[in-house]
């Protein structure tokens, strides 16, 4: 009963909302059965998305630093080959930063609204850095 009451509430949480077409209402009924409360399953994508974005930016930064002749000493100490050390360091930083961020997102019930856009820009930036500064 409680679940059904929540389901009838609009996603915004306000009762006075503009009327939507019936097809859209049905679509929202199927797609969002428990209102706007972030569920466990829908938030599992946050670490993957955030981790990928962080990896791309960190790796691009380390790549630029290497091209400029500035090798970060803790990173260079990981492996003698810069490609491998940069990969391991970026992966470690991405994992270390994405999991706490995902926990914060989950606790606050937030969703990453513009993940696709951020990921697109990260991919474009990474590609540009790699292609323009070999």
């Amino acid at each position: 009963m409680q679940r059904q009451t929540l389901a009838t509430l609009p996603a915004s949480g306000h009762l006075a909302t503009p009327a939507r077409p019936r097809s859209r209402q049905l679509h929202r009924w199927r797609a969002l059965p428990i209102g706007h409360v972030a569920s466990r399953h829908s938030l599992t994508f946050v670490p993957a998305g955030l981790g990928c974005v962080v990896f791309l930016w960190i790796y691009a930064g380390l790549h630029l630093a290497h091209v400029e002749g500035v090798d970060v000493s803790p990173v260079a100490a990981i492996a003698p080959i810069p490609l491998f050390s940069g990969f391991v360091a970026s992966l470690a930083i991405a994992a270390a930063s994405s999991i706490p961020a995902a926990l914060v997102f989950r606790q606050a019930g937030l969703r990453l609204r513009s993940l696709s856009r951020v990921l697109t820009w990260s991919i474009v930036t990474f590609g540009a850095v790699v292609l323009l500064f070999p």
Binding site: A31, L32, P33, H41, S42, F45, R111, L115, S116, L119
Partner: peptide, 19 residues
């Protein structure tokens, strides 16, 4: 794999496509 239909705007699916 984490995309679910309960995600109203299918953000995970869209991000998977971008990736």
């Amino acid at each position: 794999l984490s995309a679910r239909n309960e995600d109203p705007e299918l953000r995970a699916s869209r991000a998977a496509f971008v990736a």
